[in-house]
Amino acid sequence: MLNYILRRILYAIPILVGVNLITFFLFFVVNTPDDMARMQLGMKHVTPEAIDNWKQERGYDRPLFWNDAAAGAGQATETLLYSESTKLFRFDFGVADDGRDIGGDIRERMGPSLAIAVPTFILGLMANITFALLMVFFRATYLELSGVVLTVVLMSISGLFYIIGGQFVVGKLMHLVPISGYESGLDAFRFVLLPVAIGVISGIGSGVRWYRTIFLEEMGKDYVRTARAKGLPEGRVLFHHVLRNAMIPILTGAVVVLPLLFMGSLITESFFGIPGLGSYTIEAINAQDFAIVRAMVFLGAVLYIIGLLLTDLSYTLVDPRVRLS
């Protein structure tokens, strides 16, 4: 087990190196530090000195890949690629353009992101599975047909409209909850309610359909026939036999996104003014703050890889046929 986890972590390193190379290419090669400086300092009136200053402040004044000026191993290490990569791998994200510490910001903003993402995820999963099971239970009736139609309609609506509509109806017309904003502590509840509700509803269409397909696939298998031949009631067949088998794809599919919940949701957070990592990212994109975007890309990749590892581990928990080796 430990051996397996260790091996998976080792496998993760080349992937992270790859991610790092891609981001480095996007942020430093396609767009050189000179371009960045010019953009930050204003396109027109920049003196070469100002650019050099700007680069020096951030340590961007080294060559990209190969430093002819340095000696020995320094030729490779005293470069932008080396220094920026090692910093990322130490989770040292540096400072943003406005001078704030990115690492600190991330730690601070993780809380609000999780406050939205975790309840949305859990409630959404429960709602989706429940509705999907109901549809399978009532299969070949009009109840199921209308359910199918409803899910197609729900999934044809852009997520943006769920948010806009929800804010308008619940927040503006009914004045039930604040339209946007966030407070820490217990007060957060008022602010979290609407985004979570909207998050769950907007995911129902595709979620229910997806789980329904999984359930239907399981329903066609031989062991279900055996269970029926035992004379078990349909409910037990569904909840005991089918659900337990369907939990394998469902759980493992859910586990992979679990770590990514830290990243928050871009759209929801920005619409509701939640000071989480999602809105942090959007703000960075709009402000073209590449240091933050790079940090978030790296963070996302790390979390994704943790998700993959957790998926493999969760297989061993829910599927007796899988043993780690």
Binding site: I15, V19, I22, T23, L26, F27, L260, M263, L266, T281, I285, F290, V293, M296, V297, G300, A301, Y304, I305
Partner: peptide, 11 residues
């Protein structure tokens, strides 16, 4: 896949 899609697109 491990790079968050939106961020890659944004970049």
């Amino acid at each position: 896949n491990s790079i968050p899609g939106v961020l890659l697109i944004a970049a």
